[in-house]
């Protein structure tokens, strides 16, 4: 039983028996080639028992659901803040100047050693604040996509504030909660930034909590190595 016939049966919109009846009336009962060229009469609803599942190839039923899911579920990229909005949220009224940097291999290795977090990108999206602080846009790995967030550093290298800019994960949206983000404020490069130590975990959002905490730890190490 080929794929086409499975599909015919599973979609069950086209009833071959109906077509045969039409052709029998026109003395064309055996002409199966012509039969397939005719516009088939569409039967709505369930066919009689045994028609769909005579071959029982239900492997195609889940596959048939994929287009349904793809069509019915909208795209979901959730961008909460643009770069400008994040800058104004963390440093309201401050003047920021772009100051991107590129880490050397040695710097990247040292940052990884100190933070115990992977340096995925050596180009750092950085703005210098007039009062001496820094504004950094960073990404960490989510379960399915990257999580984009911004970190504001005070002039002394401690965390002023973080903001989630883009979150596109299945779950873990709770990392946007102000209370959770607030516990990162004041941390410096010496802080452990470990879940259930100095950072509270959000149950059900553990992966996002851990990766953002690791990302902030890496940024604080970047400050020590490349910005201080």
């Amino acid at each position: 039983m080929g794929l086409l016939s499975n599909f015919d049966q599973l979609t069950c919109a086209l009833s071959l028996s109906s077509v045969r009846r039409i052709y029998q009336a026109g003395d064309l009962a055996d002409d199966l080639v012509k039969c397939r060229l005719v516009v088939l009469r569409i039967k709505i609803g369930f066919p009689r028992q045994g028609v769909i599942m005579r071959t029982a190839q239900w492997i195609w039923l889940p596959a048939a659901c994929l287009p349904v899911a793809a069509i019915s579920i909208p795209a979901y990229a959730a961008t909460y803040l643009t770069v400008e909005q994040a800058q104004q949220t963390i440093f309201p009224g401050e003047k920021l100047a772009p100051a991107n940097i590129m880490l050397t291999n040695e710097q990247a290795r040292e940052i990884e050693r100190r933070s115990d977090a992977n340096v995925r990108r050596k180009d750092i999206k950085l703005w210098k604040v007039a009062n001496g602080g820094y504004f950094i846009v960073d990404e960490v790995v989510g379960k399915h996509e990257f999580i984009t967030y911004a970190v504001g550093l005070n002039a002394d290298g401690t965390v002023k504030q973080i903001e989630i800019m883009t979150y596109r994960e299945s779950y873990g949206y709770e990392v946007r909660n102000a209370d959770w983000r607030a516990q990162l404020a004041g941390k410096n490069a010496a802080a452990p930034l470990k879940l259930n130590k100095d950072i509270k975990n959000i149950s059900g959002a553990t992966l996002s909590c851990r990766h953002i905490a690791d990302g902030v730890k890496r940024i604080l190490a970047t400050y020590e190595i490349a910005l201080k």
Partner: peptide, 8 residues
């Protein structure tokens, strides 16, 4: 494959 609300 995993999207936000479904996977296979």
């Amino acid at each position: 494959y995993a999207a936000e609300r479904w996977w296979f």
